[in-house]
Design a protein around this nucleic acid. Structure first.
Lengths: 167, 167
DNA sequence: TTTTATTTTCAATAATTACTGAAAGTTCAG
DNA sequence: CTGAACTTTCAGTAATTATTGAAAATAAAA
C-alpha cells in the first residue's frame, strides 16, 4: 500500500475506533493526523487534510488539549498556532486512562458507593438483590480503579512484563 | 436513600456510563434493570419499568443476548419469554472485554499490522514517522490484546491479587 | 491607536443515531 | 389445522450529536 492511501486508512481506522469507544470521530481523526505528523500542524493544515470547518477543527483541537494529548507549539517568526501530539504511545494510553478515570469512572464509583447504602427492608428480595449487586459493582470498580492507578504510575516494560509473567 | 429512588439512580448511572463508552444508553439501562432483578423479567416488565416501546425493548434485549450478558429463561406454565442477566460481575466484565476485543480491537489490530507494511521512500520524513507510529501502535495493541486474553482466562481473585502485588 | 491576523464562540443546520408502533412473522394450545 | 399469544421487523419519525460559517473576541503589528 502506498503512503497516501495508508495515511487515509489510518485516519479512518483511528476515527472508527474512537467513535466505537464514545469519542467524537473527528476528534480521533485530528489526533490520528497529529500522531503521524513529523512536524507541528496548523489549524489550516488540519482543515485542509480532513476537509472540516475552522470551528470544528478549533473545537476538537481544544478538546484534545484538555485531554492532554496535544499541545500548542509556537513556531518562531510565525503568528499562527501550531499543534503537536504526544507521540509515546504508552504515555498516550496513560493520559487517556487517566482522563477517563477522572471523567467517567470516578463519578460512577461515587454513585455506586452511595447506592450501596440504600435503606430498606433487608428481608425484601429486591432490596437484598440490589444491595448485593451494588456491593459487587462497587468492589469491582474499585479494583479497576486501582489497576488504572498502577498503570498510570508504571513504566511500560515493567507493567506488561509483570503482567505477562502472570500468564 | 429509599430503594425506589436508588433503583432509578442506578439505572441512570449505568445508562450514562454505557453511553460514555459507546454503548446504547437504553441497552445499558435494560442491563441495569436485569442486573438488580431478583427474578427473570419479561419484555413487558422492561417496557413498563423503562417506559419504552416493545420494539425498542426487544431490540436491546436481543443485543444483550448477542453480547452474552443476558439469556432467555423459560418460566414453566408460561408462554412468554423471560430474561435474566449474568450476575457475577467478574464474568460480566470478561464477557464485555471479550466482545469488545472481537468487535473493535481485533479489526483495528489487523488494520495496523497492514499499515505497518506501507511502501514508500524510507528516507522521507513523513513515511518514516508513519511507519514508526504504526509499529508503536501495533506493539501496544498486541500487548493490550494479550492482557485481555489473560483476563478472560483468569479467575478474579488471582488476577487482581497478582496485579496488586505489583504495586 | 488603528489595522490586520488569528482564534473562539455559538445559533442555525446537517448528519447520525435511537425509538415507536403497527404489520408481518412465529409459535403453540386447543 | 385455526386462532390467540407472543415476538420480530422496519419505515417513518423523533431525539441527539456534530458541524458549519460568520460574527465577536483577542492578540500582535504597524
Amino acid at each position: 500500500m502506498k503512503y497516501k492511501e495508508a495515511k487515509q486508512q489510518f485516519i479512518q481506522t483511528w476515527g472508527k475506533l474512537g467513535s466505537e469507544w464514545g469519542i467524537n470521530r473527528t476528534m480521533a481523526q485530528v489526533h490520528a493526523l497529529l500522531l503521524i505528523a513529523p512536524k507541528p500542524l496548523s489549524t489550516d493544515d488540519i482543515m485542509e487534510e480532513l476537509q472540516i470547518s475552522r470551528g470544528n477543527a478549533n473545537m476538537n483541537l481544544r478538546e484534545l488539549i484538555n485531554w492532554t494529548l496535544v499541545s500548542k507549539e509556537l513556531v518562531p517568526g510565525n503568528r499562527m498556532e501550531y499543534f503537536v501530539a504526544e507521540k509515546n504511545i504508552w504515555e498516550v494510553a496513560r493520559r487517556i486512562a487517566s482522563e477517563r478515570k477522572k471523567r467517567e469512572i470516578e463519578p460512577a464509583k461515587q454513585a455506586l458507593l452511595k447506592l450501596k447504602e440504600t435503606e430498606g427492608d433487608k428481608k425484601n428480595e429486591e432490596v437484598k438483590e440490589f444491595i448485593k449487586m451494588m456491593t459487587q459493582l462497587s468492589n469491582f470498580v474499585n479494583k479497576m480503579d486501582k489497576t488504572v492507578e498502577t498503570m498510570m504510575k508504571a513504566e511500560e516494560n515493567w507493567f506488561f512484563g509483570t503482567l505477562f509473567k502472570m500468564m
